[in-house]
Design a protein around this nucleic acid. Structure first.
Lengths: 226, 226
DNA sequence: ATAAATGGTCAGAAAATCATCAACAGTGAG
DNA sequence: CTCACTGTTGATGATTTTCTGACCATTTAT
């Protein structure tokens, strides 16, 4: 559950935002002054900061600068008017996004989600898997073999990406089910067989003697260690 | 470390700007006259020029024009008032951005960063995409097929530009929403379908077998690989 | 060698996703 | 204000993918 820190001096606004964010599954902390917000940030280390520009105690810009100096917690600025934003457009201070008042809480939640998603996507996952003469670009959703592009359905793509990410490791059908269709524990293990067959048809030149996707009898499948 | 050239006749202002820019990690050169600025530009080849409009020795406009004639070093204009800018815009000077006085040094640094970043980002993407008989000039905002210009609505062009800038890469509807209407997380993903349909109607001769904008089932759309 | 267990393949059914259309809303120009 | 244009939305039918179970082939264990 990602934690959001709201630094905003209007209690009414904080109340509304908190309600919406919590409903959306976020944990919420709030401060009503800039300096208080900064120390709360140090203490709680939230995943994202919603920061008003005009604050008592300490200016929002200074708060942002201070946070940036120590960390790159994503910051979404709340500003009163569009003109204020013109000053910030360069985003000198590294705000990740901004919202101008008046705004609907719904929009705020959407922004928060978008920023977190954007950062997550950029930071964590490897973008690229290369094994043998197969190349998988997770971002672009492409698979090439010897430079030739091969079309994949979403499930096929997921399976291949899972297997190829750890060549030599055997995956059970259950693990592959989980990888391909999310968490789903329900489902028929043999479904995987069908997808493997289709994958092989697309990848292997000799489907009888698979070169890439090998069967591990009694266990599952693995991508060949090259 | 990017180099910035300041051409500005007020020494006090130069001093402040230099201090801020250096703190921000830029190398700074300065000239106090237009003609001197131009020769310093020739000599140092900075990554960006901060250029005052009213200068002794040589008018800022002439300096800009001269720089543009030889090179496309980004230029950020410093102008006294907004009205001055209106003139400039008509002159199609090719400045990359402008700032009106009075301005905070912070804003200047932000602008400089933004311009450099924008150019960097732009440099990575092609300005021009040609596939078969379609030609898309992302810069000029034009699309031609067999030499004939095709009119696009703004949204259509944005979508097409996004897709065509990275042929072969699949984009989700969410990514396309974000690209076409700015930030939107809200909005109906199927809206993209409608725009794609309109785009295809304009681009494709056989809308059933799209040659340019391909559907990636379960993922989104992509521009055909070249 | 034979039986038992596991994997491969296939085709039809079910589910998910997509294309298209028509109606509606917002916007700016005249 | 009206009109034209653009963009949005929800519904419908079409398409593609995914799932499933049956049947046969292969592997393993005895």
């Amino acid at each position: 559950m990602p934690k959001i820190l709201i630094i905003e001096d209007e209690p009414e606004l904080v109340k509304v935002l908190r309600s919406y964010l919590e409903k959306a599954g976020f944990g919420v902390e709030a401060a009503y002054r800039g300096d208080a917000g900064l120390s709360l940030w140090k203490q709680k280390r939230p995943d994202l900061v919603l920061l008003d520009l005009n604050l008592p105690g300490m200016d929002g810009l200074d708060v942002a600068r201070e946070i940036r100096r120590k960390d790159n917690t994503p910051i979404v600025m709340l500003t009163a008017r569009v003109e204020e934003m013109d000053q910030l457009i360069g985003l000198e201070l590294g705000a990740d996004d901004y919202i101008t008042k008046p705004f609907s809480p719904r929009v705020v939640v959407a922004k928060v989600r978008a920023v977190l998603r954007r950062l997550d996507a950029a930071a964590e996952l490897p973008q690229h898997v290369q094994v043998a003469d197969i190349e998988i670009d997770l971002d672009a959703h492409t698979v090439t073999k010897d430079g030739e592009f091969i079309d994949m359905t979403p499930t096929e793509f997921e399976l291949l990406a899972t297997l190829a990410a750890q060549p030599g490791r055997a995956f059970s059908r259950l693990q592959l089910l989980e990888a391909s269709q999310g968490t789903a524990y329900e489902g028929y293990e043999r479904t995987i067989d069908a997808h493997i067959k289709n994958l092989r048809a697309k990848l292997e030149s000799d489907s009888k003697n698979p070169r890439y996707i090998e069967t591990v009898f009694g266990v599952g499948y693995r991508f060949a260690r090259q």
